[in-house]
Amino acid sequence: MTPGVFEYHRPKAVDEVLALLGQLGDDAKVLAGGHSLVPMMKLRLAEPAHLIDINAIDALRGIRQDGAAIIIGAATTQAEVIASDLLVAKCSILPEAAAQIADPQVRNCATVGGNCANGDPGNDDPAIMMALDASYVLRSQGGERQVAARDFYEGVYATVLADNELLTEIRIPTPAAGVGMSYQKIKRKVGDYAIAAAAVTLAMADGRCADAAIALTNVGDTALFSSAAADAIKGTSVDAAAIDAAAQAAMAAAAPAEDLRGTVAYRTAMAGQMTRRAIVQALSRATGS
């Protein structure tokens, strides 16, 4: 662990962070759990001149119900997500997915905000936030804006987050009772990114799929929201043919690169397979069967 030289800041309040970001711009990097940034710094692939550690700011932590939304503070750890009764009861896909991220040591540090904001297509939370139609609250000295997860990502490590902005919290519309959800991930080993993964939420009414959302992890430059895949099951009884059509749509949306996880053909096929499995599990949860 031999990073380059950097200035270390540990502000106590969000306004201090925003002031530093306003002043330092892209010379600064925000440090939350550090599990993406620190490995890059270790290899000197990232050499930020300033590091702004937000771990002393309690206001950025915690999971709470706020009217019709569930709010997750950006510095909330994956371990806290797993331990949240609120999420287990109302948004189980998040704790279930968090349990598939890395290992306990990593989850004790790694944050939801870092996972969402970093723009790494291998991260798991972005696809889930897309499926849940979550919004990100972005603050700067100039004010606050909300951006839908589905509009946030632009490319590998590229997002709409400006250099002077901080992701402070994630707002998730509370899923209605009876919405089934599932995150299916295939990986090589604990701690690895997905070969492919799929997040599915769906609601059934009168034996028909009333609503659905499907998003994919690590099979493109960003997490991929596939309305075509969701459309393939909406309005259907979610029978084998519909599931097959959704899987085909997911495969059509997927554009993975070949890497040591597998060939393009394999990773594309797994995008379909994970979509298929996530729909089946979400359906069984939605119908209580």
Binding site: I186, I195, R261, G262, T263, A265, Y266, R267, A269
Partner: peptide, 15 residues
């Protein structure tokens, strides 16, 4: 690896 085993599955049409 999963990818290579799948390759065999795919070639044989077992998937």
């Amino acid at each position: 690896t999963q990818s290579k085993v799948w390759q065999t599955l795919n070639e044989l049409g077992l998937n």
